[in-house]
Simulated scan of single mutants.
Amino acid sequence: MQKGQIGVTTENIFPVIKKFLYSDNEIFLRELVANAIDATQKLKTLASFGEFKGELGDMRVEVKVDKDAGTLTVTDHGIGMTADDVNKYINQIAFSGAEEFVNKYKDNANSIIGHFGLGFYSAFMVSKRVEIRTLSYKDGAEAVRWDCDGSPEYTMELCDKSTRGTEITLWIDDDNKEYLEQSRIDMLLKKYCRFLPVPVVSGKEQEWKDGKYEDTDRDKVINSTEPAWTRKPADLTDEDYRNFYHELYPGQEDPLFWIHLNVDYPFNLTGILYFPKIKSNLDIRKDRIQLYCNQVFVTDSVEGV
Rank of each mutant, 00 (worst) to 15 (best):
K106W: 11
L261F: 03
Q290H: 15
K128D: 14
I90S: 06
Q41R: 13
N25M: 10
Y274D: 10
F275H: 02
G119T: 12
E157I: 03
D147R: 00
M81T: 00
L118M: 03
G7L: 13
P152Y: 10
T10C: 04
E167R: 09
T225Y: 02
N243K: 14
M59G: 11
W208I: 07
K104F: 00
Y274K: 10
T40S: 13
D160I: 04
G57N: 06
C293S: 13
N243H: 09
S151R: 07
D149Y: 11
K212M: 06
G57Y: 03
Q290C: 10
E31M: 08
D147N: 12
K209F: 13
N103E: 14
I93A: 13
E205C: 12
V221C: 04
F95Y: 11
P255M: 11
K138H: 05
A83P: 01
V302Y: 11
L21N: 10
Q252P: 01
G57P: 01
C293M: 11
D66F: 00
G114H: 11
G251N: 04
V65G: 05
V200G: 10
M81Q: 09
V63W: 01
R231H: 02
I17Q: 06
G54V: 03
E26W: 01
Y265W: 09
T155E: 15
D215E: 15
Q182F: 01
T225S: 10
H246A: 13
T270L: 05
A34S: 15
M81Y: 14
